[in-house]
Design a protein around this nucleic acid. Structure first.
Length: 151
DNA sequence: GCCAACGTTGGC
DNA sequence: GCCAACGTTGGC
């Protein structure tokens, strides 16, 4: 069992969208490190901090869970998609996505709040220059966030 | 809209 | 395989 933080732009898929749809495919990741986390490490039932990025109030907006293992991201084959990748083929797909299911919505835990807790100072998402859309979360960080910050 | 940080690309 | 140029991310 592992823990993850996954960034989504709420204009694209917000925690409310996930709550309404119950499950979403995490398509559109075009970074190898993030892809590898999904393809090689994520297991069914892994816990996910759902993070809103590039928006008015960036921060953790809810909890989710991996509900389907990684499979080829359909948008890489779709010429009309902004995620289209001409170098990817069905025989040799380049990009993968898992699916996650809704667990709960939380009041947004903002970046300043996350940074204010010593227990969370090592979180990858808070590291300077971090641009990964998917980062591993330590079990202790998960415990702190889900038990101390989310009632 | 700015810009620091950093990943990717491609010429050599 | 180096590395400059370029593109993207994402908070502010």
């Amino acid at each position: 069992m592992r823990y993850w933080l996954m960034k989504s732009e709420p204009d694209d898929v917000s925690i409310d969208d996930l709550a309404a749809k119950k499950t979403v495919a995490w398509y559109g990741v075009r970074n190898y490190q993030s892809r590898n986390f999904m393809r090689d490490q994520m297991q069914l039932g892994d816990k996910v901090l759902f993070y809103h990025s590039s928006c008015e109030v960036p921060g953790i907006a809810g909890l989710a869970e991996v509900s389907k293992l990684a499979y080829p991201d359909a948008t890489q084959f779709d010429k009309k998609s902004k995620y289209y990748d001409g170098k990817a083929t069905k025989e040799n797909p380049r990009w993968f996505n898992v699916e996650v299911k809704f667990v709960k919505k939380t009041p947004v835990i903002t970046l300043p709040e996350l940074r204010s807790h010593k227990e969370l100072e090592k979180m990858r998402v808070l590291a300077k220059g971090n641009r990964l859309s998917i980062t591993p979360v330590d079990p202790a960080e998960w415990e702190f966030i889900t038990h101390k910050l989310v009632k």
